[in-house]
Structures are given as C-alpha cells and as structure tokens.
C-alpha cells in the first residue's frame, strides 16, 4: 500500500480540494477591486493552480500529517504503519513534503518527517472489506493560533452554554488576526478532556467547507459564527476585508461534570486533505473523507460521491 499512500500524500500536498477552491473564489469575487485582500486571494488561486500543475506543495509548510485509517480486521496496523512511514520518507525525498519533524530537545531535524509522534496516525477497525485512509496536512502557523478555553472564562464572560461557546470562537478568531493564513476554516471541539477536545476540533476540519451539520442546534451556531467571525473584518491574510473565515465546524463530546473545554483548531486556507479507498488492491482517490460523510454534503459533492 506504500505506493497508494505516497500518491495520497502527493495529492494532499499539491491539490487543494475543490470545495475549498470554490469558497476561496467566492471570497475573491466579494472583495473590492484593487484591494490587497482581493489581490492576495488572486495569488492564492494562481498558486494552487501552479502547485497542482507542477506537483509541488501548495505551501512550503507541509504541516502536521494527520492520518485516519479505517481498516478491515484482516489488516495489520503494524504493517500499515510501516507503509505510511515508508511513503512519508519517500514523499520527503520527492519534495512533496518538507523535512518537518524536529527533535524538541536537541533541535535536530530528523530529515524525513518521521520520529516520535510524527506522523500522527489514528486507526479504526471496521466491518467493511475496503481500507480507507484520510489525510490532512495542517500548517504550523495555523496550529500556533489554535486555542483552548476552559469554561467558565471570566475575561470574555463565557459560561458553560451555547453563548459561552460562541464567545470563545469569536475571541479565538480575533486573537488569531492574520497570523493563521486566513481565510481560515474553524474546527471547534466542545467537551471531552483537554486532548480529545482538540482531537474533536481537528476531526471537524476533515468536513467539506460548505456542508451542513445535521444537528440543527449546531448548524445554527455554525451559521451564526461564520457570519460573526467575518464581521470582525480581519480579512484574507489580515489585510482587512469580508472573508475572515470560510466556515465554522462544531462537534461535541461528552465531558466530565467538572470540565467544559472549548477547543478551536484554526486551519489555514491551504486546507490540504485527501482520501483513498483501497479494495482488492485497487486505489480510488477522493476529496471526501469518512468524517465528511457523517455530515450533509453540499449538492455538488454529493452528486460526485466517493
């Protein structure tokens, strides 16, 4: 499966998903003619076209590589890990990935994107015969402006309710300013513990940017927050403008009575994700992850299917 995983990495790094491009183009058209934010988005669009045509990374920060692998019972996780690591090393040699894994104590770059905790791999066994791998490359600039709140929070008057969650998200997007390479996609994880809360937030980033949450309460909050984050006026790259975020995606997990975390995972405009399904040795690539399929897909994506 090494070969298929290598191709998955290439696609994730070099080809921005169609749903994201579409929203970036809408954002570009909305910004005023001659404004820096419009020109920034023009460059983004041209850059993505160039990256895709020349099989080069959309962004030089090829990010944390986050894998979700769904496999039948018969497939060994050890073997899958070996294949993912081998594909990662090869992708680095081919410059689809930048050497991006640094020993935090010595400062030494491993040179091949592997090492303790790199890449990040989540396994799920399932009853199907196919193997599916979903991959997200999440850049460091956007990771640095991601945030976690423990409610109640006095500074922004956020209590343990929907209104509290709303305040956290607006505050986090404000704090990020232009440093997360906006327009961003905002993944929100409510509940869980400190670790799983952020995992939930990051899993939200696998959703299609213009999908709909089947939970009407969360769908309404996502819509409200999308509009309110854009009212901040931070705009593309922090140049000022109408599109500060492309979407807000919210998921919730059960929590302890004592804890109430709201985690905000900021994803830069270079929302690089790709998926592959392998059945009987044949790989089929897609831009729709398993995570995305849990939500109401926009009409265009639903027609194309997996």
């Amino acid at each position: 499966m090494q070969k298929d995983f290598l191709e998955l990495i290439r696609r994730a790094s070099c080809e921005l998903p169609a749903d994201v491009i579409r929203v970036i183009k809408q954002g570009r058209n909305a910004e005023a003619n001659g404004s820096p934010s419009r020109s920034a988005l023009d460059d983004v669009i041209e850059n993505c076209d160039l990256a895709s045509r020349t099989s080069r990374p959309i962004c030089q920060d090829t990010g944390t590589n986050i894998w979700y692998v769904y496999h039948p019972r018969s497939v060994s996780q050890m073997a899958l890990t070996r294949d993912i690591l081998a594909a990662t090393r090869k992708a680095t040699r081919l410059a689809y990935l930048r050497p991006n894994a640094v020993d935090s104590i010595t400062g030494k770059n491993s040179g091949d994107n592997t090492g303790p905790g790199a890449p990040v791999i989540h396994f799920h066994e399932w009853s199907r015969k196919s193997l599916v791998a979903d991959l997200l490359l999440k850049g460091g600039g956007s990771e640095n402006v991601s945030a976690q709140y423990s409610l109640p929070n006095g500074a922004i008057g956020a209590g343990r309710d929907l209104e509290g969650i709303r305040r956290c998200v607006v505050d986090a997007v404000f704090n990020a300013q232009g440093k997360g390479c906006g327009p961003g996609i905002i993944g929100v994880g409510v509940g869980g513990d400190r670790a799983t809360s952020m995992i939930e937030a990051k899993e939200q980033l696998f959703r299609l940017v213009n999908d709909k949450n089947p939970d009407p309460v969360l769908a309404k909050l996502e819509k409200t927050l999308h509009a309110q984050c854009n009212e901040l006026g931070i705009g593309p790259m922090g140049f000022g403008g109408l599109t500060t975020v492309m979407g807000v995606k919210i998921g919730a997990r059960h929590r302890l009575p004592a804890s109430f975390f709201v985690s905000i995972a900021y994803l830069c405009w270079a929302a690089r994700r790709a998926s592959v399904s392998i059945v009987g040795g044949v790989a089929t690539y897609s831009q729709i992850s398993q995570q995305a399929l849990k939500y109401k897909l926009p009409a265009v994506a639903a027609r194309k299917g997996r």
Binding site: A40, D43, P57, Q60
Partner: peptide, 13 residues
C-alpha cells in the same frame, strides 16, 4: 513586506 502566506510555488518561481 507582507508576502502572501501559503503562496509557495508562486513565490518559489
């Protein structure tokens, strides 16, 4: 000077 974040191949060229 603010360059366009993420516009990596474009600036590399």
């Amino acid at each position: 000077l603010h360059a366009i974040g993420g516009a990596a191949p474009l600036l590399a060229d």
